[in-house]
Design a protein around this nucleic acid. Structure first.
Lengths: 231, 231
DNA sequence: GAAAGTTCGTGAAAATATTCTCGAATCTCG
DNA sequence: CGAGATTCGAGAATATTTTCACGAACTTTC
């Protein structure tokens, strides 16, 4: 495809394939792959026995099924220094990842679509540890509105925009049926949402500047089926 | 790290970083990245308006936020031929992906750990369309055992191994708390499970030959937080 | 305190993945 | 039919990611 007018207009400008963004703190760039691995480390290391403090890259390599050089490179990127013959400090790894990714400061989010999946996400414990704070629940099913999950009341999507604007919420977790996803995404963006965590199995079209992370769970089935082909 | 005895023993042998596996049908290799994109295409294209049959790579590129060459390459890998000035046949894309990934034949699975997340997965509609058939639900909480979700009764984990062996089930969806994940994974492998879809936030150590896909949902928070750093 | 054994840190090399370029095929419309 | 617009297909060129290789740092043990 030549760079025709049409192709230049839509998308492409931001968050294309390897979504690279400059960190505020340093000049360093974290690529998508590094980001994913760092989170993987974080999630698992934060659940380690608190007595274990020094961890070597070969140990992490086995644990996470990556190369040990990879681990060292990843940690080097976020400025974690190791000690020869000892490894890295677990607490420092966690701290630096938190800092670098901005997990510390509380991230307010709304959940849009409170079906089974949405409900599970609202109640998911690990989110709070990571700084994600769910501030509002929305659904357009009259039978659900007024109900509550994890201490939060489910509200009508009618008041969603003003709710988000008033509280300056930047993150939306979208767990609604496919056929309303795009419409809701549009509303969310209008209300000032800057990141959509999309659990509905569609692609959303959003203006550049809005970050979308697709969490298409079914993707896993593909990989599993493929790896099971010989059986 | 030199290739010492220790590092050679654990892992490394199969499904390291880019989990490449040879397809039975052709000599072609699908890498992790291609696999993910193909599933992404599949999930979204299967929900398209049935009247739309011809789709061009520039169109798909905008939709999925990838390069149009990428789309063509992906489709070439699975042997989908396009037509100049028209694009590709939607039905053919879907068919070839299904064939190539082995989505057609019904894939039996058990769900282990029926909390909120496990329950949501059991009820998740799209799974069946993709060929994933949930054959059994297991939990070790006596209050849950005997209950039912989506027409399936929750059974005790005591009988899990024989259940899996008898029905020759190959896939397990693990949605249990972290502290029992490794133990259960071990049992599952003993029972003959060949692929574990791990939703618990730990890394599992399994013998080589068993495929693990980690679905650490919280990873998404990291990416979102990072992209929201400037705000 | 020297020797043996780990492990970090890093630059170079290899492997993968993505994008560019452009000729050829196909359709539309006057 | 011929001009113009669109799109495929494929090889070359880039860019990114992963792995290798090895010197230096640190511990432990004799």
């Amino acid at each position: 495809m030549k760079k025709t007018a049409r192709s230049r207009i839509i998308g492409k400008s931001r968050s294309v394939r390897p979504p690279i963004v400059r960190s505020r703190r340093t000049r360093c760039l974290l690529t998508h792959t590094v980001l994913e691995r760092l989170m993987h480390y974080y999630i698992c290391l934060s659940k380690y026995d608190p007595n274990i403090e020094w961890i070597s890259s070969p140990h992490l390599a086995v644990q996470f099924r990556v190369d040990d050089t990879q681990v060292r490179k990843d940690l080097a990127v976020i400025g974690v220094k190791g000690r020869p013959n000892a490894g890295f400090r677990r607490s420092q790894i966690l701290e630096r990842i938190r800092e670098f990714l901005g997990l510390g400061r509380s991230l307010k989010a709304v959940v849009v679509g409170v079906g089974r999946l949405g409900g599970a996400l609202v109640a998911y414990r690990d989110f709070r540890e990571l700084g994600l704070e769910i501030a509002g629940l929305f659904d357009n099913d009259p039978r659900k509105i007024g109900g509550s999950i994890a201490g939060l009341t489910i509200l009508s999507t009618d008041g969603m925009k003003s709710f988000i604007r008033q509280r300056k919420i930047r993150i939306a977790i979208l767990a609604c049926p496919v056929f309303v996803a795009q419409i809701l995404a549009h509303e969310l963006v209008e209300a000032g949402i800057r990141a959509i965590w999309n659990f509905s199995p569609t692609t959303l079209q959003v203006p550049s500047g809005v970050f979308v992370r697709n969490e298409h769970i079914s993707v896993g089935i593909g990989e599993i089926a493929y790896h099971l082909l010989p059986f």
